[in-house]
């Protein structure tokens, strides 16, 4: 059956400037990258799309990937599998696993990193880790640009302003020598119940010189427990029976303080995943 509302008009800009000027003149248009976020929520024969579509994938500079001294710079339209192609030794285990976990190989051949960060549709499983890694995003609109931390970008009061497009991201290189990235639950059938957990630690000899972790729950933002992380940093390993250590109360209270976003079920999961990570550090000594 053919639907009878007007079909979208598609624009294929070739440069960022051309795209920004189109978007300024038609701010209601849909920015279309890989489309896997857009179409995943529309499994009807003819997906309903808005009247004007700006297709981003013909803009070469949006797919560029560069390695500079301190960071990896990735164009918003770089496809996920192309990013994986940089190699685990550069991306490091957590980021490699986080990208590898998205969809199927077929999906990752079209899905882009910018589409993941900007997707309003479902859990964005890269965000907690990108936020731990202090990733910065370049947002451009005609005549101006700004850089913003990914953590700020996903907060409810921030995000994209009218006419803005995510053009590239900078992920600082890191030296965390222990990394973990885990998704629990079933993203497909119950994305609100699923939890994304990322943990990074630096261990020198028997010293836990730095540790940080983040959890993403559904589309409820990111859970962090900074005071707890700071209190743990600098401690000597192994750290057995950490749940009886006074420092552990800081994690419990951070979870309680965010009980609107973090249910008791997810709190227990976060504690459990954190303890498993700590055990793995102890075991490595």
């Amino acid at each position: 059956m053919i639907k009878n509302i007007r079909s979208p008009l598609v624009y294929y800009p070739k440069t960022v400037n051309e795209m920004l000027s189109l978007y300024k003149s038609m701010p209601d248009s849909l920015l279309y990258a890989g489309g896997t976020g857009i179409l995943a929520s529309k499994n009807t024969k003819y997906p309903e799309l808005p009247g004007n579509i700006i297709y981003l994938r013909r803009i070469e500079e949006l797919s560029a990937i560069r390695r500079s001294e301190g960071y990896l710079e990735i164009g918003a339209c770089a496809k996920l599998n192309r990013i994986l192609g940089i190699g685990e030794h550069v991306l490091k285990p957590a980021l490699y696993a986080a990208i590898r976990n998205i969809g199927t190989k077929e999906v990752r051949n079209i899905a882009t990193i910018g589409g993941n960060i900007c997707s309003p549709y479902r859990t964005k499983t890269l965000i907690p880790l990108l936020s731990l890694l202090e990733t910065r995003l370049e947002l451009r609109k005609q005549g101006s640009s700004r850089w913003i931390n990914v953590r700020k970008f996903v907060s409810p009061e921030e995000g994209l302003h009218e006419g803005e497009v995510l053009t590239r991201l900078r992920i600082p290189f890191n030296n965390f020598n222990h990394q973990s990235y885990i998704i629990t639950g079933d993203l497909k059938s119950d994305y609100r119940g699923a939890l994304t957990f990322a943990c990074l630690a630096s261990v020198q000899k028997e010293n836990l010189s730095a540790i940080k972790f983040a959890a993403g729950i559904g589309d409820n933002g990111i859970f962090r427990a900074r005071e707890f992380e700071e209190a743990l940093s600098g401690r000597k390993l192994p750290l057995y029976a950490i749940t009886e250590d006074p420092v552990f109360a800081r994690l419990t209270s951070a979870l309680k303080n965010q009980s609107d976003e973090v249910s008791s079920f997810h709190s227990r999961q976060i504690e459990g995943l954190f303890l498993t990570f700590m055990h793995s550090l102890n075991d490595m000594l």
Binding site: Y12, Y32, G34, L39, Y55, R57, N81, V107, N109, I110
Partner: peptide, 17 residues
């Protein structure tokens, strides 16, 4: 698509121009 495997159900025809 250009030698890489992709899910054809996730590809509107305008993107294969």
């Amino acid at each position: 698509l250009e030698g890489r495997i992709v899910p054809a159900c996730q590809i509107p025809i305008f993107t294969v121009r």
